[in-house]
Design a protein around this nucleic acid. Structure first.
Lengths: 94, 94
DNA sequence: AAATTTTGGTTTATAAAATAAACTTGTTTA
DNA sequence: TAAACAAGTTTATTTTATAAACCAAAATTT
């Protein structure tokens, strides 16, 4: 009836990040920050958690001289996101 | 882009309870417990929060000799639930 | 009828989460 | 060269979610 919701995705900011990445596959830190309107600290922490779970991979590099962190959704992450969306449907009148 | 999600509703158990009440309007504690498969303690706490927010009203009475707590969704609660569902749509590919 | 179990919860304790504030390192601009 | 900015990270704090322990009354068992 009410399937367990993946606690990693049932978080406002992580869900927003995954929602973006599910669409564009890859995005850098600054882009995610702007789109989600999150603080850098919060975003940093949530990205770590998604990475630890294997839902995204993180590439650290430079854009010109500036450091640039790029996040890419993994197949595991994409599947988890889709499962979460499906699970939610049982909670909502859609 | 990503609207703020009502933190009172962005909780697995509270969302399940509100989802049920949005459909049936009124249900008692035992029914909610069975449907959500929650522990009594957790359910009790979450019901309190929903009641404090004015999303549900709680009637305490008896069914025969047994105590019976009935929860009813309020117009405020129903609106909040609908708003939450709408907000979520911006996070999900639906 | 006394003891035990069950029902219907509440209260309390704890572990985990979300978030912001403070900090760091390096770069650009005035 | 000093001040401001960019891109994050680390740390600290406040909430949450949840379960475990508890309680009173009713029902059941012996």
């Amino acid at each position: 009836m009410f399937p367990k919701l993946d606690p990693l995705l049932h978080s406002e900011l992580r869900l927003a990040v995954m929602s973006i990445l599910a669409e564009v596959r890859s995005a850098d830190f600054s882009f995610l920050k702007k789109q989600t309107d999150a603080t850098a600290g919060n975003l940093s922490v949530q990205i770590d958690k998604l990475a630890e779970a294997g839902y995204i991979s993180v590439q650290k590099g430079f854009k010109g001289k500036m450091p640039c962190t790029t996040c890419t959704i993994t197949p595991t992450g994409l599947e988890a996101f889709r499962n979460y969306v499906n699970a939610l449907k049982d909670y909502l009148p859609l």
